[in-house]
Write a protein that binds this DNA or RNA. Structure first.
Length: 424
RNA sequence: GGUGGGUUGCCCGAGCGGCCAAUGGGAGCGGACUGUAAAUCCGCCGGCUCUGCCUUCAGUGGUUCAAAUCCACUACCCACCA
């Protein structure tokens, strides 16, 4: 293996499986190559799990290759059976179209569309929509053996779990067709994806060999495993999204900052674009003085900057510093406080009106789900106003509790914050 | 097609006429310890106008003073036999 890029990916533990690695290395070293990575629109936004493969795609571009980001306008209408033990419910066409647009935007921000090896954006609906069913069955379907299709992990698992519709069964054919089409249009010989995509990718490699008598390559990326065995990127409340309206930059940053110590090294390997030396020194710091959380901060900073921009990240960091810092919250100057609170979930009250009770306020701010929950937390001593524990349910905030005459900082537990602003 | 078993709170899973908002485990939440980490320990864990009230045990209807628990039908799942 000679490709430096592959060596780097190996170091990052970002390679699960590849087709002949020697061949692949030779191919990559031979020039600026096209490669593709696809995402199906199954939600209005990509999430952190998608970021793993996307990061790898970006590494290819930085290494001089030409990335093709494909949004599955067609495949998203069909549904990938991989990794699922039950049939997906089909989404409405208009909904999927809307999601395609949104995901496209996110992808655009992540790759470079200018320069000598610009990225390309593709949508598989462009070449599947014009093809008739008969044409598809004759031109593409003829090259597939059902025996082989049945043997694919994604299908066999489903057969065992009770069955699979013809629709989802056909998914691998569509994805293979995509690879073929991109090979024709953009001379693309490599597809990358999550390790669960191996079967689908290889189906494309086969198709290209059969139809075009050309060789193509596959590279899959391991799914991130967390130390506690749970799925990476999911919290009890759901996924961590890249869309700032779905997961605030503050929450996004906090997610990484709060990573389990045991996961930080791999997360840095996976997501960071820092040099190996810099990363090694962060790992060292993690071992020697984990309490300082230097590696956590570096990780959270870098990933958040990549997604939400450097400016936004600084704001979020400053907010966290102000709100979690040692200094008295009452001593923060108005501008600092205001910008910190901007990053938090917030509610507003109208000035002049009587303040709601403590329980109602916690509820209104969304810190808890119900009044019962609010009472519980208050009773348990986990509710704080401006960093002071308030354990009386009947407590009613007063004018004097306002910081700078208009803010209140609510906190549940150690790190769940919300802001209240009184409009004048 | 036949027969038998099942469907319980976020998940798994007890309960099989009153003592049931329902045992236990997991997840989650709060507290203590720490580092906005992990582990551990303690507490909480349907809702509300909260010493009480309201809505939950697949759905509908029924029996009963009283049902998650009994009966009937419907839907779905599982097992065995054809």
């Amino acid at each position: 293996m000679t490709s430096a890029l592959l060596e780097d990916l190996q170091w990052r533990k970002s390679i699960a499986q590849t087709t002949d690695q020697g061949e692949l290395a030779k191919y990559l070293d031979g020039g600026s190559r096209s490669l593709y990575l696809g995402f199906d629109p199954t939600a209005p936004s990509l999430h952190i799990g998608n970021l793993v493969a996307l990061t790898v795609l970006r590494r290819f571009q930085l290494a001089g290759h030409k990335p093709i980001a494909l949004v599955g306008g067609a495949t998203g209408l069909v549904g990938d059976p991989s990794g699922r033990n039950s049939e997906r419910t089909l989404n409405e066409v208009e909904v999927v179209n809307d999601w395609v647009g949104k995901i496209r935007k996110q992808l655009e921000g992540f790759l470079d569309f200018s320069g000598s090896n610009p990225a390309i954006m593709a949508n598989n609906l462009d070449w599947t929509a014009p093809v008739s069913a008969i044409q598809f069955l004759r031109d593409v379907g003829k090259h597939f053996s059902v025996n082989q299709m049945l043997a694919r992990e994604s299908v066999s698992a489903r057969l065992e779990a009770g069955g699979i519709s013809y629709t989802e069964f056909s998914y691998q054919v569509l994805q293979a067709f995509d690879f073929l089409e991109l090979n024709r249009r953009h001379d693309c010989h490599l597809q990358i994806g999550g390790s669960d995509q191996w079967g689908n990718i290889v189906a494309g490699v086969d198709l290209i060999r059969r139809v075009e008598s050309k060789s193509a390559h596959a590279l899959t990326i391991p799914l991130l495993a967390k130390a506690d065995g749970t799925k990476f990127g999911k919290t009890a409340d759901g996924s961590i999204w890249l869309d700032a309206n779905m997961t605030s930059p503050y929450a996004f940053f906090q997610f990484f900052l709060n990573s389990d110590d045991r996961d930080v090294e791999q997360l840095l390997r996976t997501f960071s674009f820092k040099s190996h030396e810099e990363l090694e020194s962060l790992f060292e710091s993690l071992r020697i003085n984990p309490g300082a959380r230097e590696a956590h901060r570096a990780l959270a900073h870098e990933v958040t900057s990549l997604i939400h921009g450097e400016d936004q990240t600084l704001k979020v960091e400053n907010a966290a510093r102000a709100l979690f810092g040692q200094s008295e919250i009452r001593e923060l100057d108005e501008a600092t406080l205001e910008s910190a609170l901007k990053e938090l979930p917030r509610t507003s009250l109208t000035s002049g009106q009587e303040f709601p009770t403590w329980v109602d306020l916690l509820c209104a701010a969304g810190v808890v789900d119900s009044k019962s929950a609010a009472r519980r937390v208050v009773k348990e001593g986990g509710a704080y106003l401006n960093n002071e524990k308030i354990s009386g349910e009947d407590f009613k905030p007063q004018q004097s509790d306002l910081l700078h005459g208009r803010f209140m900082v609510l906190r549940k537990g150690k790190r769940d914050l919300a802001a209240v602003e009184v409009d004048s």
